[in-house]
Design a protein around this nucleic acid. Structure first.
Length: 264
DNA sequence: ATGCCGAAGATACTTCGA
């Protein structure tokens, strides 16, 4: 059983890559961010033809999130946005897949620590924390996947000194990440890999990917009930090497079959 | 020190990303 997350930076542009990746990596759940599509522009026919069902929350030009699920699995109780938090930006969608509660989120970037967008980021993070806390009370099997726009530790940053205190690395953002962990979640990737230079995003400019100068900002956080079933979590760098790639690459969590209620 | 690249909307150049 596999769950994955990928910020595709325009699903219109990246749809062929998503379909190609799914053909090679037929994960049970794929969370996508930055669709950059209006709600009625989602390529449902192509997704269904690939053997997946989908729930999505679109928006013109910016943001947009989706959960793709293998057609043979359930996709129930879809909730869009953060309940109780008014937000015109399409950043969050949740669904239950065979007993596992999946939240797909595109966290606010923040631009810079002195930007109004950073203030919005911290407000949004506080709202998300409350939402996750409530979801964990209702769902033992829970996963929060997405583009967090937070590098949790210095080892997740190619030049920690240069990024010290900057947006994506600032103490308040890392504290918010820590509070998500304190709710009872684990950073799935770090259960298996404590190495440095493990990144999920590389700037398009200055050949940053070729030089492996990136950040680890795409994450899969799992509840204890799922953590028990985690057997691997990897960053798949291959799509970042393709022609016209997203600047992010997929993160994939593998769980033993018992993680899904249907398979027990 | 700042831009580098890329997508989108618009259709010359700006906004936004991270």
């Amino acid at each position: 059983m596999q769950l994955a997350t990928w910020n595709v930076n325009s699903l219109k542009v990246r749809l062929p890559q998503v379909l190609a990746w799914l053909a090679e990596n037929p994960v049970d759940v794929l969370c996508l961010q930055e669709l950059k599509l209006e709600q009625d522009k989602f390529p449902l026919a192509e997704v269904e033809a690939a053997g997946y069902r989908a729930a999505w929350l679109g928006q013109k030009t910016y943001n947009g999130v989706a959960i793709l699920v293998k057609a043979e699995r359930s996709l129930d109780d879809v909730v869009t946005g953060i309940p109780g938090y008014d937000d015109v930006q399409s950043r969050v969608i949740a669904a239950t897949v065979d007993g596992v509660r999946v939240v797909c989120a595109y966290f606010v970037n923040g631009e810079a620590v002195d930007s109004p967008k950073y203030t919005y980021k911290l407000e949004w993070l506080a709202a998300l924390e409350g939402y996750v806390e409530r979801e964990l009370e209702r769902h033992a099997a829970f996963a929060l996947l997405g583009d967090y726009n937070i590098a949790p530790e210095d080892i997740d940053v190619y030049d920690a000194d240069a990024w010290q205190g900057k947006v994506l690395c600032s103490a308040p953002e890392r504290a918010a990440f820590g509070r998500l962990l304190a709710l009872g979640l684990a950073d799935a990737f770090r259960l298996f890999n404590r190495e440095e230079k493990q990144y999920s995003w590389w700037d398009y400019r200055a050949m940053m990917f070729r030089r492996n100068l990136g950040l680890r900002i795409d994450h899969i956080l799992v509840s204890d009930a799922l953590r028990e079933h985690a057997v691997a979590c990897v960053i798949d760098k291959l799509p970042r090497k393709w022609e016209r790639p997203s600047d992010h690459t997929p993160v994939v969590l593998t769980l033993s079959a018992a993680a899904f209620a249907q398979d027990q």
